[in-house]
Design a binder for these strands. Structure first.
Lengths: 114, 114
DNA sequence: TGGGCATATCAACATCTGGTAATATATGTG
DNA sequence: CACATATATTACCAGATGTTGATATGCCCA
């Protein structure tokens, strides 16, 4: 059955997961798992460019996945919800078992280095 | 810090989440949450085309997110790991709180219908 | 063994997404 | 008030992704 409500929920969920499905955003989220960081610190931790980080942070903030707090001229970012960390943790666990399969899954390659 | 190992793990995790980040795959996974289904049943449940479903199933199977079992000329699919369902459940919960933000997040639009 | 359905595969196309670069804004500081 | 630093924004480009359609393979039933 494919009700309109269900379809909408599915689209939203897909959109939510897309927040996690990019290496850059995932790096940011993983960095924030340890402790809140400023943008500059995130840039240093991830090696991404500053505009790139800012762009992704904006997206993550709009989606409620991270929260920001301006302190002086720095902006501190932290995970916006405990369940974000929980999902990341579950993914780590799951990955421990299915990593090999995913690694070898080249059907839709994901810029996986060799 | 961006060690090679960490980078690899991040890539893998991104790849894992990408498995969930597509409405078609998510529809399939959600359909399988209720009970195992054959390809034909999945096609009927999701409204997707058969080749499309088959393609995504192949990807999901390779990644270990679903498991398949051939029974006669039908192939029965089911979720490959309890944590897959757990992640989907957590996402539902999280979505209940941040849905509005995600819905309005058009920064990287995600074919979200109005 | 032949017919028919269930499933998988392949190639091509339209679309979207993420990165970079240049630039703008704002907040303290001297 | 001018300057330097921190963060955000915009536009554009390259690459990857998902869908479609036609087609191939394989398993059951008569």
């Amino acid at each position: 059955m494919l009700t309109a409500a269900r379809a909408g929920a599915t689209l939203l969920k897909a959109k939510l997961f897309r927040g996690f499905s990019d290496p850059s955003r995932l790096s940011i989220l993983d960095a924030l798992r340890a402790s809140p960081l400023t943008v500059t610190e995130i840039v240093a931790a991830t090696g991404l460019s500053q505009p790139n980080v800012s762009n992704h942070l904006g997206c993550l903030r709009d989606c409620g996945l991270v929260a920001s707090e301006q302190r002086g001229r720095h902006v501190h970012y932290r995970l916006g919800d405990a369940r974000v960390a929980a999902i990341l943790g579950l993914a780590d666990e799951l990955l421990a078992d299915v990593a090999k399969g995913i690694y070898e899954c080249t059907r839709y390659s994901a810029s996986a280095e060799a």
